[in-house]
Design a protein around this nucleic acid. Sequence first.
DNA 1: TTATTTTTTTATAATCATTATAAAATAACA
DNA 2: TGTTATTTTATAATGATTATAAAAAAATAA
Lengths: 148, 148
Amino acid sequence: MQGVKAMVSHLEEALEKMKNTGVRITPQRQAILTYLLETMTHPTADEIYKALEPYYPNMSVSTVYNNLKVFIEAGFVREMTYGDNASRFDADMTAHYHALCKVCGKMTDIEYPPLEEAVHMATGQTGFRAEGHRLEIYGVCPDCSVEK
Amino acid sequence: MQGVKAMVSHLEEALEKMKNTGVRITPQRQAILTYLLETMTHPTADEIYKALEPYYPNMSVSTVYNNLKVFIEAGFVREMTYGDNASRFDADMTAHYHALCKVCGKMTDIEYPPLEEAVHMATGQTGFRAEGHRLEIYGVCPDCSVEK
DNA sequence: TTATTTTTTTATAATCATTATAAAATAACA
DNA sequence: TGTTATTTTATAATGATTATAAAAAAATAA
């Protein structure tokens, strides 16, 4: 949870960085970024769009998507992807985790002792009743590291 | 990595359990499950469909989806979801993890020391060059635990 | 300032994974 | 064998995201 002060400075920092890298600071961009910094709910693109629609009556959903991509590339925003790839299925029900290659999309098993402690701490902290968890490493697989 | 022996027994076990719970063992079901047990590539629904198409020329994609759901409910298969929900965006770039409520969809922050060790071990094991990682707890949030 | 160029936004259509629906096929059971 | 329940198929619908092209806005040059 970040305070108002940190939030404002994050906004200023972001605007500064955008200015320096030649990315225009449009009203829509400022609104989307401000909304993301203000809200704690990890909104979807559509939620952002709906929240800003009253203030920007003819803003397009594309604008939200386009600018989210800009922010992600600039490192201001992080995406938790659930929507742009197909689900993958695994018949190995033993406890294990996965590494995903961002180049070729390959998914590799990781053998690692279950993160009981982390899960326990998380449930205590959030009050969640945990039914499962996933750890995923994102990066480049050895095959894709070779070339280039 | 599971051996052929374990695989066969998993198949038999699954077929047995299906028989006991009144789920019919159709050729398509057996083919999908066998393929999932044989392959190590964590295939998508479409990959499964394409792999089995030559042998079952008029099988439908729906059949793949339907039966994957059956297997998941029976506990034979696990789904790594990337495709049935919208992405969520977070402007808090500090290292933290998330808990997701399967009832209301709410996403809650978890403060936890970064899993450096797990990531390090994973990169050593897989040869991946890691650029990031995610830990997610799945379960029911306190609000949704109350009612029912 | 005005004209020109570049970037951004908008509106709309296209794509892709997934789900819903209903008819046809199959299997179980009486 | 006839009847019922389940499963498969084919097709359409949905929903998130991306692509495209024209319009608008901002930056730059003259």
